[in-house]
Nucleic acid binder design. Structure first.
Length: 640
RNA sequence: GCCGAUGUAGCUCAACUGGCAGAGCAACUCAUUCGUAAUGAGUAGGUUACCGGUUCAAUUCCGGUCAUCGGCUCCA
């Protein structure tokens, strides 16, 4: 006899073994039908997720997970990936399956096939999936020995490799219809639970994510327990596309890209306004925080890059030029330049920490397939800084940088970002002892500042580990922006020193850090986060002045001149067009404020202010309007 | 770099199986003087990304190059 305790349902004793589904069904049919999977807690405290078909054989606590639980949605997506595999197998019997996990908002399955799969091939697969779903096949779990599994999956090198990697002697398989997959589960009870799904895209993906391996076909899809949820999801994706910075950048004439210079952005007048405003603020913060600005050349001798280690560890990403028979490289990073500035004279411990900030334009050769609007370009401006410090300064310096990042991101309206600690890569300089010390130091700093973080093993720079800050774009892809890198290696490579209290030469430590990351990437994300509706203080055009007819042009002109004189960015739409049309165009240009000028305004010496997206229309005096503008802009408010 | 897709007017998109390249918006001209998201009429605008091939004939079929998009790998 076993004792079962089901959350929100009560305690039961079982004489005979029973599946969870049957047990719950006998008590509450409705609940059994609704539940997707169960979270089991065993006597020893161990927890695991199980299918509703799980057969109870020992004392258990059971928590039933309903469709709205995140784990239930994961399970559904994972099960749908199996259904897709069955459909693919039915259509292409020669396909060899690799892995098919659930991911955020969906699933994929990777498989090998000696054939091109195109978007047109998705429809037949979807149709086949629909048949499988309506057949309502159960997902049948079975434990087998590794040898049995090898027999089942013979001829499939991917599954065999996975079996070899499993530590247990037994492996789990799931049978659905007559398709068997290697999978630890859990799964939905049967294929009929998939209410809605869609196959979204096809991609190539390397087996095990390794470039050296064969490229497999990957099909992405998504699935839901309710049809409306699928519709909502697809609508959300469509809406997110409207926030794409590449589209907005073109529509609002902020920047452009040209075939003549792939991956090298061209900044237009309105884009430059955004850049300069961000950088004005950036300079203000840096000066306040004890930084000194420097600027170093874009082209430096190859010899320098040999010294720094870039030649050995970064050459693939660099551009080279010849000047008078001598070899030079276009800088991919700013650090060697900053070091030369440091080295130009002797330094004393009394000066530390020395904080050199540099808005450095770097060029990196990125592979053609990775370019992506402003997010991934071949030249970009890093808001860099190199801090030369004593080892005992490190804690306070790193904390100060973390605070600076938090402050800047808040000003630009980024509320959520995540932190990663990237540790030593395979290809690196410096001793292991150095890396131990540097990694430990960064981790301590993260913990002291109570940041949540995950470790990103092997992803550090070749000269040191780093703390990375990631922000999401409109499609929730994350991009690294800020980074704080600790470097004991470069100071040694360049043999930089300072004079200590003991009248002896010592080696300083370097921190490399960026806050915005790349100005280009940062602006891209800024645009996406606001869907182009930038806060008043950064909007390239702040006010559109809209005279109702040309009878009011001279009064409008007067308002325009007042705004210009006060330093606001205003445009006067003096065309002979309907007010509706002028408003529409100001809306499309995402201008935050419109000022409508007609008879009433001219007579009372006022303006009628209309906020973007309508509503809240107010007739106020010019001075009142000016003070509203001033208050909002001076405080860098993120909304009107 | 790899896998797949796409490339037609400034923008968004048409052109059935090969037969003189078309629309809306934008631009320009004229008329309209308008109160909170498009006034009307007209004009102009294209070596169909580029190079080559097949064909009497190519935007359309084939090959190559380039760029872009979605992924993979890589990265700020």
């Amino acid at each position: 006899m076993v004792n079962i305790d089901v959350e929100n349902l009560g305690k039961f004793s079982l004489e005979e073994s029973s599946s969870i589904f049957n047990l719950i069904s006998s008590k509450n049919k409705e609940l059994a039908r609704k539940a997707i999977i169960a979270e089991l807690t065993f006597k020893d405290g161990a927890k695991k997720f199980a299918d509703m078909n799980f057969v109870i054989s020992s004392d258990l606590k059971i928590k039933l997970l309903l469709p709205d639980d995140e784990k239930s949605i994961d399970t559904l997506n994972h099960s749908t990936s199996h259904v897709m595999a069955i459909a693919i197998k039915n259509i292409y019997p020669e396909a060899k399956f690799a892995i098919g996990p659930s991911i955020k908002d969906g699933f994929y399955y990777d498989f090998e096939i000696d054939k091109t799969i195109s978007p047109g091939d998705l429809k037949p697969i979807e149709d086949e999936m629909k048949k499988i779903i309506s057949s309502n096949y159960p997902f049948e779990r079975k434990e087998v020995t590794k040898d049995e599994a090898r027999e089942i999956f013979k001829g499939n090198p991917y599954k065999l490799e996975l079996i070899n990697d499993i530590k247990d002697e037994k492996v789990i398989t799931y049978k659905t219809g007559n398709f068997i997959d290697l999978c630890s589960g859990p799964h939905i009870i049967s294929t009929g639970r998939i209410a809605a799904f869609k196959l979204l895209s096809i991609a190539g993906a390397y087996w095990r994510g390794d470039e050296k391996n064969k490229m497999l076909i990957r099909i992405y899809g998504t699935s839901f327990f309710k049809k409306e949820d699928l519709k909502d999801y697809l609508d959300k994706i469509e809406r997110a596309k409207l926030s794409d910075h590449r589209k907005i950048g073109k529509d609002l004439e902020l920047f452009s890209f040209h075939d003549e210079a792939p991956g090298f952005p061209f900044w237009h007048p309105k884009g430059m306004i955004i850049r300069n405003l961000i950088l004005d603020y950036w300079r203000k913060i840096h000066i306040e925080s004890g930084y000194q600005e420097i600027q170093t050349p874009i082209i430096l001798s190859n010899e320098l890059w040999h010294t720094s280690g870039h030649w050995d560890h970064y050459k693939e990403n660099m551009y080279f030029v010849k000047i008078d028979e001598n070899d030079y490289a276009v800088k991919p990073m700013n650090c060697p330049g900053a070091i030369l500035v440091y080295k130009s004279r002797q330094h004393s411990y009394k000066e530390f920490p020395i904080r050199y900030a540099e808005l450095g334009l770097v060029h990196r050769h990125e592979k053609s397939g990775v370019l992506h609007g402003l997010f991934r370009v071949r030249n970009f401006t890093q808001d860099d800084a190199h801090i030369f410090a004593l080892e005992e300064n490190l804690g306070t310096e790193i904390t100060a940088i973390i605070n600076m990042i938090g402050k800047m991101y808040e000003v630009f309206g980024f509320k959520s970002y995540h932190v990663e600690l990237s540790t030593r890569p395979e290809d690196r300089i410096g001793s292991d002892e150095m890396w131990d010390r540097a990694e430990k130091k960064l981790e301590e700093a993260i913990k002291e500042n109570n940041l949540e973080y995950k470790i990103n093993p092997g992803d550090g720079a070749f000269y040191g580990p780093k703390i990375d800050f990631h922000i999401k774009d409109s499609l929730e892809r994350t991009w690294q922006c800020a980074t704080i890198q600790l470097d004991f290696a470069m100071p040694e490579k360049f043999d930089i020193t300072y004079m200590g209290e003991d009248n002896l030469k010592h080696r300083p430590v370097m921190i490399h850090r960026v806050i915005l990351g790349s100005v280009e990437r940062f602006i891209g994300i800024l645009i996406e986060n606001y869907s182009g509706n930038l806060p008043l203080w950064i909007a390239p055009v702040q006010v559109a002045i809209l005279p109702i007819s040309d009878r009011f042009h001279s009064y409008s002109e007067k308002i325009y001149k007042v705004l210009k004189k006060e330093g606001y960015r205003a445009e006067l739409d003096s065309r002979v067009e309907s007010l509706n049309k002028k408003i529409r165009q100001a809306e499309l240009n995402k201008i935050p404020l419109m000022v409508v000028i007609g008879e009433k305004e001219q007579e009372s010496d006022t303006v009628t202010v209309r906020k973007k997206a309508g509503g809240d229309i107010k007739n106020i005096s010019i001075n009142e309007f000016l003070s509203v503008l001033k208050e909002n802009i001076e405080n860098r408010k993120t909304s009107l």
